[in-house]
Simulated scan of single mutants.
Amino acid sequence: MRVYITDLEAYNNGHLVGEWYQLPMSEDLLAESIENVLNEGKEICEDEHFHEEYFIADYECEYMEIDEYANLTKHNEVAEAMEAMSEYEIKIIKFLLDNHIVSDIFEAIEQRDDVRVYEDQTMEDIAYDLIEECYNLDNIPSIISNNIDYKSIARDLEIEGSYYKFGSDIYEYIG
């Protein structure tokens, strides 16, 4: 995640004063970075008083949108959490956000363990695996096991509402 932090008072006075920063960074470095931008704005505006307000003029982030007046400390924490995640977990976060299952990135991070991903499978594959998991098909007479309607079970699982097709995968949300 990269953010362009801009001095709001300098901007309102017709000066674009800002800098790109890569998140995550230490809290001290983040505070220092904001202070540097605000000091630069103060100097350009030739003000006596300290500039206090900043905004995010631009950003680069794959997994979420960032509001211009967002809390950078919280987004720094999100960037730190996302940096520690696997591609699989990030895929789940994107799924939760893009399908509006959660309201924000913080909720998505908390609920990522409530999602199971079936990569490159169909609902019929999932129905078969579910039946296999719940019942040992080797112990069921073949006249029964050969007549299980996986297509109908798959349709009923879809209707149930906890399975979502997203890209080439199927996601099960159990939250």
Rank of each mutant, 00 (worst) to 15 (best):
E107T: 13
T122A: 06
I148Y: 04
C134H: 14
I131Y: 05
I126E: 09
I126F: 06
I126D: 04
N139M: 11
N146K: 11
D138T: 01
D129S: 15
Y135C: 10
N139W: 13
E124M: 00
S152K: 15
N146S: 13
A108M: 03
N147M: 05
D114Q: 11
I148H: 01
T122L: 00
S145H: 13
N136E: 01
D138L: 00
I143S: 13
E119W: 04
M123G: 07
S145D: 09
Y118A: 06
N139T: 09
L130M: 09
I148V: 14
D138Y: 02
I126Q: 04
Q121E: 14
D129Y: 11
M123K: 02
Q121L: 14
N136C: 08
I144H: 01
I143E: 14
Y118I: 03
E124D: 12
P141A: 03
N146A: 11
I148N: 07
N136H: 08
N146H: 13
L137N: 04
Q111W: 07
M123W: 01
E110D: 15
S142T: 09
C134I: 12
N146G: 05
Y118V: 02
L137G: 00
K151S: 15
I140C: 01
E132H: 07
D114W: 05
Y128Q: 07
P141N: 05
I131F: 02
Q111I: 05
E133R: 06
C134K: 13
I126H: 07
E124I: 01
E124W: 03
S152Y: 14
Y128L: 01
I140L: 06
L130G: 11
N146Y: 11
